[in-house]
Write a protein that binds this DNA or RNA. Structure first.
Lengths: 140, 140
DNA sequence: ACAACTGTAACCTTGAGAGTTACATATAAA
DNA sequence: TTTATATGTAACTCTCAAGGTTACAGTTGT
């Protein structure tokens, strides 16, 4: 959803876009978007102004926004969910399985982020523009 | 949880282990384990017998079980959840953002699996054994 | 026969994420 | 300065997946 929002902002190229408009593209409620914007602001990806005729716009060029930074801006917890209950500490496996897996999982997540870093918002935008070059129906 | 179960089976080295015992190590209900076992069977990782005095044991050597195969055996859906509602198709971004992201996300997941593939169950087992070499308290 | 297992159905519980309503606040423009 | 247009945020509800639980049918060694 975050990538979608940023893609719209990139598409609009600097123009101030309201949360209502973003919500209509994502097909969700404006409040859901407004909950997302502060995260993207904190990551320095967008800038948002208040008041009439305002909205959000990108703070960096799409070429300089990599998908891993979007991932980190938005994603709070690990992709691998830990046990809800802690394993049986009296069992030798239960005792140290978590720390053993933590290392493996965090390096797996790093690998995933490195792969995400290979794509920029500009790459996404290019695909979007290429796709609608034939049938250009822009609305709202 | 699947890795935990397999690690216990590796630790017990061929011995038939009951779902009740596995559950006590993971600290969960035996039924949860029994729901997991068929997935590991289907992936050819374990073998389970029925009846009195039976249980599960590994079908391959721990050295030959890589974590990515465990991941695929257990994980059904993608780590990146798709939009619950489809985006606004009238918006050029909404129209093709999903297919654009699908490609990026699946290659990111591939990268993650390749990283997981670098670790085998034997590696996990080694950590476990090293960890409890000092304070060996084996129970149940 | 019986006890020790797995398999599975049918439920409840929990937590995260999204969706919704309502309202306070900020601000450009009339 | 007033008003329409925005964001920010609290306080819910909805939904769904994962785990947890109970109960019981089926299987097999002893």
């Amino acid at each position: 959803m975050a990538v979608h929002v940023l893609a719209v902002l990139a598409y609009k190229d600097g123009e101030a876009v309201t949360s209502t408009l973003l919500a209509s593209s994502v097909n969700t409620n404006a409040v859901v978007i407004r909950r997302l914007l502060p995260l993207l602001q904190a990551a320095g990806l967008i800038e948002t102004t208040k008041g009439a005729g305002s909205g959000s716009h990108l703070r960096k060029k799409p070429e300089r926004i990599r998908l891993d930074s979007i991932y980190r801006a938005v994603e709070t917890d690990e992709p691998f969910t830990a046990h809800s209950k802690t394993p049986n500490q009296a069992c030798p496996v239960g005792y140290c399985i978590q720390s053993a897996l933590d290392k493996v999982f965090s390096s797996a997540e790093c690998a995933m982020q490195e792969e995400l870093a290979k794509t920029t918002l500009a790459d996404i935008l290019k695909i979007v523009k290429a796709s609608c070059s034939g049938s250009d129906k822009k609305r709202k």
